[in-house]
């Protein structure tokens, strides 16, 4: 299985049904985008999981680093007022 090592890595996103957004399903190695899409079909939708697939070169994804975890995410932890739970819902407003 060694020849695959020089094939680029692709991230696979699958939409499970209409109306939902694509979610990350996994990754695979493929020589190009066309083959990546087909291999994604075979690997991630063979049990009827999807109606649409995206493949994205893993190298094109910019990800947050674990080192930045605290400055990135911790400040949001103690600000419960950002959740929309502090509003009085006026009488007569339905479907909110």
């Amino acid at each position: 299985m060694s020849p695959a090592t020089d094939w680029p890595l692709w991230e696979v996103f699958v939409r499970s049904r209409r109306g939902l957004s694509h979610s990350h399903a996994g990754s695979l190695h493929a020589p190009d985008a066309t083959m990546a899409l087909r291999q994604a079909r075979d690997l991630y939708t063979r049990r009827g999981e999807g109606v649409s697939i995206w493949v994205v070169p893993s190298s094109q994804i910019t990800a947050s680093s674990p080192d930045e975890k605290d400055p990135f995410f911790e400040p949001a932890a103690d600000k419960p007022y950002r959740h929309p739970t502090f509003y009085e819902i006026p009488e007569g407003v339905r479907h909110l």
Partner: peptide, 12 residues
Amino acid sequence: APVLEEDVALAN
């Protein structure tokens, strides 16, 4: 198969 991905494709 030459690669894992192709293994699954051929089995499908």
